[in-house]
Nucleic acid binder design. Structure first.
Length: 876
RNA sequence: GCGCGGUUAGCUCAGCGGUAGAGCGCCUCUCUUACACAGAGGAUGCCACAGGUUCAAAUCCUGUACCGCGCACCA
């Protein structure tokens, strides 16, 4: 190229493509990056040079939506910056395919439901086409799990294709799946380790229970929803004479009433303390007790304690060792009860049983209506029901209110470790920092240990068996733990040591723990899964704790919390040094996109329409922690930036390859012209700020001003120097070309984390070879020190730009084109301004198409004022 | 009830002590040999409200209102 010095027009010389076609370029680059192993982690480099990302494993439940694209790109942007700093990047991807979302998807997709009692069918093929839940085929646990595995495999292929197409710089060799063998092993090992360390225990205790899915859930998975209800005033008798009225929104729990409480200072009820109340309908004798948590202002000031209406009931019941009258069954219906014996006390068992029989088998809500009717008939209602709004706990994925159901569950002790967990949270750098408050508030508000048992199927089983008692039931007091070397085990199909399969469920034999673990119990381990804590201690030491955990804010209380908890319990460490909290994509009416409307906008379609770079640009514009309104016009802006980058680069290359190239390789020392020096200084300032902001996770701010600088480059600097770069004296041309070459190289690198495709494409035209850096994504992050040229005077640039703008405004007002000749250009300004302007006057005249004879600069103004500009255009 | 964000041009947002900014949209013009998938120019704000600190406040402080979110309560 350097040999050809003939004075061709730049456009005739270039062999660069005429138009930018991202649809062709982007997929080709994806393939090349994979072939070149560009994003592979290098295990031979030390921890200090490594940047470890604890990527969120997306839930495999069908489709990735625009909200995923948004947050995963933000992580990729940060990671790409770290890579350009020279870091050895460990950036895995995982699939969270374990748990209820997958079960639900498989159920509905194939019209099946898991029934552990069904026999296994070899080569089972679901009939499909079923829409009514009641007709779903019952399949064995093993068949169900096989369907789950098949379906997730299918979905994961689609997920990976999308992530690759978006340019996520993941090392795909590090992929894991939370239900895969290795994760099951890690998760079970974690359980055993926590058990050994005394962090885990099992107990028969009332826990939050979802009646739809028939499983226990954790506090973290529950959410409050406002529900309309009624206060019902119910008359209670007092043993030995008298009565009082309690107010309740849940009359159906009357049969489960175990006590009545009022505030200790409440004069109205003080004298009742110590006496026994008698419930209507069931004639149960329940103690009347003082309790601080009864609010004299609320209802009638005296309330019933039931097993169980809410967490306060649970606590009071536990403290006072009251009897358990569990009437809500696991299916949400009122279970049978006998008031003539056992925990259900009654002064008139026959009447109580007769009343209760009418409620048995009803769902809680139906039982409520029926109870009110019965009370009314019995004359036990005082006044009309009063409407009220109440907050009720729901499983976040369910539609029925949660109940408290007493059942045997495994728990991780978090309540007694709140202060340690807060301390661990403080050691992590939160971005943005105020997100730590959410964590803090969550930990402080915890009121239950972390329940990790789920009465489900597609998950990690507890590696536990129990000896069977004489009646074949489990003796929970002596759990048999699996040996670490056997993991993963499935106690439903594997035998505990020393037993044979024939002894399963037999007297004197064994029983496998039937439950699986909470998904979060496994997800809590992602940094330890990636580091291979379970089977490679040396690797673990180089990858743990991780550097960055990216995640969304709604799962601070689940994922961030449980990861911090487990890292502390297992390793006495924080799991990562930084946590970056992304915002949500919200629809224009401010609802969360991913919940409903997001499903109608497929990322694949957007990629086709706008390109990956355009989508990435949109994600890069949003600050961490901040929700973004979905707005397709931003994609267009991103696309325009990529196109501009393409065209400006093409043009810059033409200049660089023009006559100036005859002088050999361009260098910093070639930059001698005052305007070029001033420009280069501006870029240096940009470079310095960008590194600082990127390191502080302020990538969005950095993109904003980098983009502004780039447009300034195109609209002003490039316009001012293009004539000189191509047709100036050799030294003047080389000065411009050297500045152009460095500047473009800087912009390509600064924008590479955001727009990895177009920058890589342009980089390949000449920089890759010239700088011996085949990919811009492994090129060094720009630094001002790269260009040790002497400083210029910023006033040169400022003055030139001001006059150029004034001339343009004049041409626009005169409705003339930008290249219209200027016959007179008179500038009146201060002496310093004049001196600066004279240094770039030739460039200015060329850019304005001004005739030298008509140009004058007078020092008649002041340096602290804007120059006065008089312009006269040539005749039409 | 407690806490955290937010309130800036029609829209989406940046700025966070020193003369109000960007993009989109809108209006006018221009095919200039990188780009019409473009360029040039222009209009548009009691920076939510009320007090205070300061030479100077969109920016700091104190309240208020509204929006979003989190936590708690949830008889």
């Amino acid at each position: 190229m350097e040999k050809d010095t003939s004075l061709e027009k730049p456009s005739e010389k270039a062999a660069l493509p005429a138009n930018y076609l991202p649809a062709a370029v982007e997929p080709a680059l994806c393939d090349r990056w994979e072939k070149d192993e560009l994003y592979y982690y290098d295990p031979s480099r030390p921890r200090s040079e490594t940047f470890v990302v604890d990527t969120p494993p997306p839930t495999v439940s069908g489709e990735l939506h625009i909200g995923h694209v948004f947050s995963y790109v933000q992580t990729d942007i940060i990671t790409r910056y770290q890579r350009m700093l020279g870091k050895n990047i460990f950036y895995p991807m995982g699939w969270d395919d374990n748990g209820l979302p997958t079960e639900r998807r498989v159920q509905n997709l194939f019209g099946v439901r898991c029934n552990p009692a069904s026999p296994y069918v070899q080569g089972f093929k679901p009939a499909g086409g079923k829409t009514d839940l009641r007709n779903y085929d019952h399949v064995s646990r093993r068949n169900f799990l096989e369907l789950c595995s098949l379906q997730t495999l299918e979905d994961e292929k689609k997920y990976e294709a999308l992530w690759r197409r978006l340019g996520l710089s993941v090392d795909w060799r590090q992929n894991y799946s939370t239900v895969g063998e290795y994760c099951r092993k890690t998760s079970q090992l974690s359980f055993l380790d926590l058990h050994k360390k005394g962090f885990v225990y099992s107990t028969q205790a009332p826990t939050l229970w979802d009646t739809t899915f028939s499983t226990a859930v954790a506090q973290a998975e529950s959410e409050d929803r406002e529900v309309s209800g009624f206060f019902h005033d119910i008359k209670f008798g007092v043993e030995g004479g008298g009565e009082f009225v309690i107010s309740t929104t849940r009359p159906e729990l009357l049969a489960a009433c175990v006590a009545v409480v009022a505030h200790p200072e409440d004069a109205r009820y003080k004298e009742l303390f110590g006496k026994m109340a008698v419930t209507p309908l069931f004639m149960a004798r329940v103690p009347i007790m003082p309790s601080e948590h009864a609010d004299p202002e609320k209802g009638t000031g005296i309330m019933m304690i039931c097993t169980f209406g809410d967490i306060a009931d649970v606590e009071f019941w536990r403290n006072k060792k009251l009897p358990l009258r569990q009437i809500i069954g696991r299916d949400g219906k009122l279970a049978a009860a006998d008031f003539s014996c056992g925990p259900f006390d009654s002064a008139n068992p026959e009447a109580a049983n007769a009343a209760y029989l009418q409620l048995t088998g009803l769902y809680a809500k139906q039982a409520r209506t029926k109870t009110v009717l019965l009370l009314s008939e019995a004359g036990a209602l005082a006044g009309e029901p009063k409407p009220t709004k109440q907050a009720v706990k729901f499983y976040e994925k369910g539609d029925m209110p949660l109940e408290f159901v007493a059942a045997r569950q495994w728990f991780i002790k978090v309540l007694e470790h709140k202060s340690e967990l807060l301390e661990q949270g403080r050691k992590v750098a939160w971005h943005p920092d105020y997100m730590f408050k959410r964590y803090e508030q969550w930990v402080e508000g915890l009121n239950q240990d972390w329940c990790i048992s789920r009465q489900r199927y597609f998950g990690v089983p507890f590696p536990v068996w129990y000896p069977a008692k004489e009646d074949g039931s489990a003796d929970f007091s002596k759990p048999i733990l699996a040996g670490a070397e056997r993991l993963p085990v499935d106690p439903q199909t594997d035998c505990p040591p020393g037993y044979t399969e024939a002894q399963r469920g037999q007297p004197g034999g064994f029983v496998g723990d039937p439950d699986v673990m909470d998904t979060w119990a496994t997800s809590a381990l992602t940094p330890m899964i990636s580091s291979r804590w379970a089977d490679d201690k040396a690797r673990h030491a180089t990858l743990f704790p991780a550097d960055l955990r990216p995640q969304a804010h709604e799962i601070i209380r689940t994922w961030a919390f449980c990861t911090i908890a487990k890292a502390w319990m297992h390793e006495n460490s924080i799991p990562w040094h930084n946590v970056a909290i992304s915002g949500w994509v919200v629809s224009p009416d401010k609802g969360k996109m991913s919940k409903s409307k997001g499903k109608t906008i497929s990322p694949e379609t957007l990629l086709e329409t706008y390109s990956a770079d355009a989508l990435r640009y949109w994600a890069g514009k949003a600050k961490l922690g901040q929700d973004t309104v979905y707005d397709e016009s931003v994609f267009k802006v991103g696309m325009r930036l990529a196109t501009k980058l393409f065209n400006a680069s093409k043009f810059t290359m033409m200049q660089m390859n023009g006559p100036a190239a005859a002088g050999g390789k361009l260098a910093a020392a070639d930059i001698t012209e005052p305007l070029d020096k001033a420009w280069v200084d501006r870029v240096k300032v940009l470079v310095e700020a960008s590194g600082k902001d990127f390191s502080a996770y302020n990538y969005a701010a950095m993109l904003l001003y980098t983009e502004t600088a780039f447009w300034d480059f195109c609209d002003n600097y490039l316009e001012l120097v293009k004539n000189r770069a191509y047709g100036g004296t050799p030294a003047a041309a080389r000065s411009a070309c050297a500045a152009l070459e460095w500047t473009l190289g800087v912009f390509l690198r600064l924008l590479a984390p955001f727009l990895p495709f177009i920058t890589e494409e342009v980089w390949g035209w000449s920089y890759a070879a010239a700088l011996n850096a085949p990919s811009v994504h492994k090129a060094p992050w720009p630094s001002a020190a790269e260009l040790p040229s002497p400083s210029g005077d910023p006033l040169v640039l400022e003055m030139t730009r001001k006059i150029l703008e004034a001339v343009r405004a004049h041409k626009a007002a005169g409705k003339r084109s930008v290249k219209w000749p200027v016959i007179k250009l008179a500038v009146e300004c201060g002496p310093k301004q004049a001196a600066a302007l004279k240094l770039s006057l030739a460039d200015l005249m060329a850019a304005c198409n001004a005739d030298r004879a008509g140009v004058s600069v007078a020092e008649t103004g002041a340096d602290d004022k804007d120059p006065a500009v008089t312009v006269e255009l040539g005749a039409a």
